[in-house]
């Protein structure tokens, strides 16, 4: 059995608010590349009125990225997120989600994070209850990607 905490079991994610207007995503990407930051993963959630872009960057790039985004007049926030490591086989992800659902935890959103160097699939998950999720995943020995692993990608 593993014991995860937010420090050991989570990775950092940056969320950015974007207006639903042509060119805003491009502009944001320009700000990030202008800061010399390499994006490791990206996911866009959009509604008819606005979008939220979620980004994963290396840990040492988080502050630099936030500062660049804010300096460009964008609303950006850092959050802690869970990154599951799931084997490439049918039903593997579903089995993990079942564990969370059994504990009454719902998933706000999820997206995948592919690294060719790894055998397993990486899935980023935003559960409704972070602490409880870490406890459930830890007691079931579900492997998680740590911030240190992300930084070494």
């Amino acid at each position: 059995m593993m014991a995860y905490t937010v420090e050991t079991g989570c990775i950092k994610q940056i969320s950015v608010f974007l207006e639903n207007k042509a060119g805003t995503l491009n502009e944001m990407l320009g700000v990030i590349s202008g800061a010399g930051v390499n994006l490791l993963a990206l996911c866009i959630a959009d509604t008819t009125d606005f979008g939220i872009v979620r980004l994963i960057v290396a840990g040492h790039d988080v502050d630099k990225t936030l500062a660049a985004l804010r300096a460009a007049g964008l609303i950006a926030r850092e959050t802690s997120i869970i990154c599951l490591r799931v084997s490439h086989e049918p039903g593997a992800f579903a089995r993990v989600l079942d564990l969370l659902a059994d504990a009454g935890i719902s998933i706000e959103y999820a997206y995948s994070f592919c690294r060719s160097t790894l055998e397993d699939a990486l899935l980023i998950v935003r559960p409704s209850n972070l602490d409880l999720s870490l406890e459930v995943l830890g007691s079931n020995d579900v492997p998680l990607v740590t911030q240190r692993m992300v930084d070494e990608f």
């Binding site: 994610q13 969320s15 608010f17 959630a45 509604t47 606005f50 939220i52 979620r54 609303i75 926030r77 959050t79 997120i81 706000e108 959103y109 935003r126």
Partner: peptide, 8 residues
Amino acid sequence: FSDTVSSV
């Protein structure tokens, strides 16, 4: 602002 659509 937070990272979820529902909270916004």
